[in-house]
Amino acid sequence: MSVLAEGSQTNGQISVAEHRYPAGYEIGLHTHMFEDEGWYVAEGTVTFPMPDDNLELTATAGEFVWHPVRRRHGLRVSEDGPARLIQFLTPGTSLVPSFFEQLKVNGSPDSPDLAQVVESSKQNYGVYLDTGSDDLPPRTPSLNHGPLTSDAKLIVPPRSDQHLCNRPYKSDKSDVRSLKIGRGMMTDVEATFHAFGAQTGNALGMVEINWGPGDVAGAHVHTLEDEGFYVLDGEITLRVAAPEGVVTAVAQAGDLVWAPRELAHYYEMTGSEGARVLVFEVPGGSLGEFFIDISKMRAADIESDEALAEAVRWMGDEFGIYFLAPGEFPEE
């Protein structure tokens, strides 16, 4: 396991870790009492059993699976090859890395300390390991179980049709949308949506964006969410106007960078081939809906000063995203 972000680094909002598992590897059924959990499959094929939801989802590279808090779940890696996964836990508790370090030391099924691990997992981390005993955690109401649709796919609704829930699902990597903002921003950009707040109980939003080289997102401030960037391919440079001065972070494949809410930031694709990035927000409210509206070409024609001013007002009023005027971002 590689820790990408601990809760102490994200103000308790989220923890993120990378896991590499061999072919045939299996994590038995267990229940998180405190965290919702999402898995992005970067490589391989993984099956996620969720018996409390009468559901079993198999995900391949480029797909994201979500399972809510207080539901039994596990995972099985295909026998055909190894898997690499990115795990997202909200909120960001001590589960990463402390719980996994404990399991690595004495969590083997054949360990004489297994009973102690089971009890410690429950008492210290709120994780119930399914050992077949009668010591079961409290369940969420059964009316809230199961996917919203028969195929358990992520729903990409119009904003006016969204009804908040927290249900398991798998994203649809074939649903690729074009994003474009005028004046040279987000040119020829493709996006795949993996999480919306409406389906994760506002815990997480996520979109995978494939940017071209040199593309840029101008200086802006998020007032409603913290924003993270996990780089799948390429290179992105993020600049954040932190209280101690401008912080510059250059992130390449496998890196994660973080932009807290209320701090102005901007980023550009500094790799020769651009960058493919998982952009995620916590809580999962407005950012995904913003990108959905952008995919409908809501801000594609902003060449005139009047159109630009209207688009800037729209972004602030609807999504709490405020773009800075030229010269407002502090110098490094």
Results as ranks from 00 to 15, higher is better:
Met1Tyr: 12
Met1Glu: 08
Met1Gly: 14
Ser2Val: 05
Ser2Met: 01
Val3Glu: 03
Val3Thr: 15
Asn11Leu: 08
Gly12Met: 04
Gln13Leu: 15
Ser15Arg: 12
Val16Gln: 05
Glu18Pro: 05
Pro22His: 15
Ala23Gly: 11
Tyr25Met: 12
Glu26Ile: 15
Ile27Val: 14
Ile27His: 14
His32Val: 12
His32Pro: 09
Met33Tyr: 00
Asp36Glu: 14
Asp36Ala: 14
Asp36Arg: 12
Glu37Asn: 13
Trp39Glu: 07
Val41Cys: 08
Glu43Ile: 06
Gly44Pro: 02
Pro51Asp: 11
Pro51Ala: 08
Asp53Pro: 06
Leu55Lys: 00
Thr58Trp: 06
Val69Gln: 00
His73Asp: 02
Arg76Trp: 03
Arg76Glu: 13
Arg76His: 08
Val77Trp: 01
Ser78Asn: 02
Ser78Ala: 07
Pro82Met: 10
Ala83Glu: 03
Gln87Asp: 13
Gln87His: 06
Phe88Lys: 04
Leu89Pro: 00
Thr90Gln: 09
Ser94Asp: 08
Pro97Met: 07
Asp110Glu: 08
Asp110Cys: 04
Asp113Val: 09
Leu114Trp: 08
Gln116Pro: 00
Gln116His: 02
Val117Trp: 02
Val118Leu: 07
Val118Arg: 09
Glu119Arg: 05
Gln123Gly: 01
Val127Thr: 06
Leu129Ala: 06
Leu129Glu: 03
Leu129Cys: 00
Thr131Ala: 11
Asp134Lys: 06
Leu136Ser: 01
Pro137Trp: 04
Leu143His: 01
Leu154Arg: 02
Val156Cys: 00
Gln162Lys: 06
Asn166Ser: 15
Arg167Phe: 00
Pro168Asp: 09
Arg177Trp: 01
Gly184Leu: 07
Met186Arg: 09
Glu190Gln: 15
Ala195Tyr: 02
Gly197Arg: 03
Gly197Leu: 05
Ala198Val: 12
Gln199Val: 09
Thr200Gly: 06
Thr200Tyr: 12
Thr200Leu: 10
Gly201Met: 06
Ile209Pro: 15
Ile209Arg: 11
Asn210Glu: 13
Trp211Phe: 15
Gly212Glu: 12
Gly214Thr: 07
Asp215Phe: 07
Val216Ala: 02
Val221Asp: 07
Thr223Lys: 09
Glu227Met: 14
Glu227Trp: 07
Phe229Ile: 10
Tyr230Asp: 03
Asp233Tyr: 14
Asp233Trp: 14
Thr237Val: 11
Pro243Gln: 04
Glu244Trp: 01
Glu244Lys: 13
Gly245Gln: 10
Val247Ser: 10
Thr248Leu: 09
Val250Gly: 01
Val250Met: 03
Ala251Gln: 05
Gln252Gly: 15
Trp258His: 10
Pro260Trp: 02
Arg261Phe: 10
Arg261Cys: 13
His265Tyr: 14
His265Pro: 15
Tyr267Cys: 14
Met269Tyr: 10
Gly271Val: 08
Glu273Phe: 07
Ala275Met: 09
Glu281Gly: 11
Gly285Val: 12
Gly288Tyr: 07
Gly288Ser: 05
Gly288Leu: 05
Glu289Thr: 08
Phe291Ile: 12
Ser295Tyr: 00
Lys296Met: 09
Ala299Asn: 02
Asp301Lys: 13
Asp301Val: 10
Asp301Gly: 03
Glu303His: 12
Leu308Gln: 04
Val312Cys: 04
Met315Asp: 06
Asp317Trp: 00
Gly320Thr: 08
Ile321Glu: 06
Phe323Cys: 11
Glu331Val: 01
Glu331Gln: 05
